[in-house]
């Protein structure tokens, strides 16, 4: 179904408006993005592990136990094997030595370490305290910061949320507007459709009315036609009668082919001739004369008794004398 022009024009306005609005929104969205810069990246937290005696012990335990010197094995008959064994033993002794050394070193180191550690621990404790303090401060700060950021975030979130909300709101509004427009359009379309339907219905109604009127007219016409047909039949009948009457009285001249004369008759309802005049001459006086004479020679013209038909057709009558053949 084609949209009526009218509606199309109206739709254009709001469509443009809607588009503009959407674009505006889009633009706005884009603009707000840069202003709303990326939130401060979260600073990596120091992950401080609290070391205590227990843990230390654990750590010790973890250290590999020094190697237990093993009893040398009875020498094997295999010299090579003995050598190898010896070597192995030597190596092992070395290794053990090394290991002892290492262990001693390690112990030393460990003692140092331990001292260090203790010192460290002390320091650490102090540091830890400091740290704790610092941490506390930091944490405070952090908390503060966090709070701040949180706040900020919250604010941001809030803002975002608000923004979002706003946008959503806008969107919603947009949506609503769009919806409204759509609704409007739909409504309009609907209305248009309704209009059209209404019109069509009107038209149909009108048609129906007209049809009915026509039917009525048709009936009337049919009646009139029937009458007319009757008239025509009557007309033809009387026309033929008059034709024959005139023909039998018209004494034709030779060489009259090609001549045409019009005689105007005025009849009375009785069929009598009131008057006959030459309405159009043939140019030959004798021919006109013969036509007039024929008209007068018909004493009584056959006319219908129906006065309506008589008045309509027969009161004024024209005879056209137009011979078709030479004699």
């Amino acid at each position: 179904m084609a949209r009526p022009r009218r509606n199309q024009n109206e739709y254009l306005g709001p469509a443009i408006f809607s588009v503009c609005l959407h674009v505006g929104i889009v633009i706005l969205a884009l603009i707000s993005w840069p202003s709303l810069s990326k939130p401060d990246p979260v600073k990596p937290h120091i992950k401080a592990v609290i070391v205590d005696e227990a843990m230390l012990e654990q750590m010790k335990q973890a250290l590999p136990k020094p190697a237990v010197q093993e009893k040398p094995k009875p020498p094997e008959v295999d010299t090579r094997k003995q050598m190898e064994e010896a070597r192995r033993k030597a190596e092992e002794a070395k290794k053990a030595e090394a290991a002892r050394k290492a262990a001693a070193e390690r112990k030393k180191q460990e003692a140092i370490a331990l001292k260090k550690k203790q010192e460290a621990d002390k320091k650490k404790k102090e540091e830890d305290k400091k740290l704790a303090e610092a941490k506390r401060l930091d944490e405070q700060k952090k908390a503060e910061e966090k709070r701040k950021t949180e706040q900020k975030r919250k604010e941001e979130e809030k803002r975002l949320a608000e923004e979002k909300k706003r946008q959503e709101e806008l969107k919603k509004q947009e949506e609503e507007k769009r919806k409204a427009l759509e609704q409007k359009l739909i409504a309009e379309r609907e209305q248009a459709r309704l209009e059209k339907a209404k019109q069509e219905e009107l038209a149909l109604q009108q048609q129906a009315m007209e049809l009915e009127k026509m039917l009525q007219q048709q009936q009337q016409q049919q009646a009139a036609e029937k009458q007319h047909q009757q008239d025509v039949t009557e007309l033809e009948r009387y026309r033929a009668l008059i034709y024959e009457a005139i023909k039998s009285k018209w004494i034709r001249l030779d060489g009259a082919k090609g001549l045409v004369a019009h005689i105007q008759l005025k009849l009375l309802p009785t069929g009598e001739l009131q008057s006959a005049t030459i309405a159009k001459s043939s140019g030959v006086q004798a021919f006109d004369q013969s036509a007039l004479s024929a008209a007068y020679a018909v004493r009584k013209y056959p006319v219908p008794s129906d006065s309506r038909l008589f008045e309509k057709e027969f009161r004024n009558l024209t005879l056209i004398f137009k011979p078709q053949q030479e004699f």
């Binding site: 007309l235 026309r239 008059i242 034709y243 005139i246 023909k247 039998s248 009285k249 018209w250 004494i251 034709r252 013969s290 036509a291 024929a294 309509k312 057709e313 027969f314 004024n316 009558l317 024209t318 005879l319 056209i320 004398f321 137009k322 011979p323 078709q324 053949q325 004699f327």
Partner: peptide, 12 residues
């Protein structure tokens, strides 16, 4: 208003 009848023949 005017009926027209054409007469094409007469009598000799």
């Amino acid at each position: 208003a005017d009926l027209v009848i054409e007469i094409d023949e007469g009598i000799r």
